[in-house]
Design a protein around this nucleic acid. Sequence first.
DNA 1: CTTGACTAGTTCTACATCGAACCATTATAG
DNA 2: CTATAATGGTTCGATGTAGAACTAGTCAAG
Lengths: 149, 149
Amino acid sequence: MKTDDDTALEVFGFFNEIGIINQLSTTMLAKSLPDGIHPSHFSILNHLVRMGDGKSPLRIASAMQVTKNTMTHSLKVLQDRGYIGVEPNPDDGRGKLVYLTDAGRVFRDQAILRVTDAFGDVIGPDQLSIIRRIHGDLELIRAHLDRNR
Amino acid sequence: MKTDDDTALEVFGFFNEIGIINQLSTTMLAKSLPDGIHPSHFSILNHLVRMGDGKSPLRIASAMQVTKNTMTHSLKVLQDRGYIGVEPNPDDGRGKLVYLTDAGRVFRDQAILRVTDAFGDVIGPDQLSIIRRIHGDLELIRAHLDRNR
DNA sequence: CTTGACTAGTTCTACATCGAACCATTATAG
DNA sequence: CTATAATGGTTCGATGTAGAACTAGTCAAG
C-alpha cells in the first residue's frame, strides 16, 4: 500500500524531472542565441510578437512568471539593444507600455531560425510525438499551479 | 498541412510550459524552506540521502545538472551551515568526498515534512494522476536531451 | 622517468533573479 | 474633499548560476 511518503517522493520526482528538462533546454537555447541575449529576453520578444505589443511591463511579467523588478531589468536590456521602446501609458500616469521596434522584430525572426535549427538537431519524431502527447497535461498542471499559487 | 514553423512553435511552446511549471514549483518549494536554504541546496541534501553520501562534488553536479563551479558554491553554503562535511578522497589526491552530517539528515527530514505539507495543499488527486501519467514520458525526454547535449 | 593530455576543484567576473523598501499615481471610503 | 489603500515601476542588496582561466593531481605514451 502507498504511504504519504511515497506520494511525496513521486511528486518531488516529477518536479525534479521538470527542473532538469528546463535546465537542459534553457542551456541549449542560450547557446543558440547571440551573446548578451538571455533566453528570458528572447522569450519576452517572442511573447510580444505572438500576443501583440503595447502591453504593460506588469502584464508581461505576469505572463513570463517573473517578478516586476526582474521585468524592469530585462526591459532595460532590450531597450538598450534597441529591440523595444517603452512609453508612458497615456491613460494611466503610473503605467508604461512596451512596443517592439523593427530591429526587435528582425532579431526575433532571425533568432527563431537559429533556435529552430538547434532544436531540430535534437528533437526527432519520437520526441515530437511525446511532446504532442503530454503538452495538454502540462498545461493543466501549469494552470492549476498558477491558480493555487 | 504542417510547416516547419508550426513544429518549431509546438516545440517552443512545450519547453515554455516546462519552464513556467518549473518556475512555479521552485517558488513554492523556496517558500516552504527556511531562510538561506535554496531549493538547489535542499535538492543536494535530498540526493545524498536517497543515493547515499560519500560522492564526489563532480558526480553530484552531474546528477543535479549544474556546473562544477556552481556545485563548489552550493557545497560551501551547506558546509557553512554544518549540513555536510567535505573530505579529501584518500584514493585520488585531486578529488573530494561529500558526507552528510547528523544535522544535515535532521534538517532534510524536517524539510521534507514542510515541503510535503505545502505541496499537499496544492496537488490533489487530479494532479497526481496527471503526474503519474506523464512522468515516464518526461523521463524519456530528459534522458534524450541529456544524451544529445 | 618524463612530458603532455586529461581530470577535479577553485577563483573571478558577469548577470538574471528575487525580496524588500520606496516613490508616484490612481482609486476608494467616510 | 480629504485621508487611506491599492497599483505600477524603480532601486538596492543579496544570491544562485554560468563561462573562462587557473592550480593541482593523475594517467598514458615514448
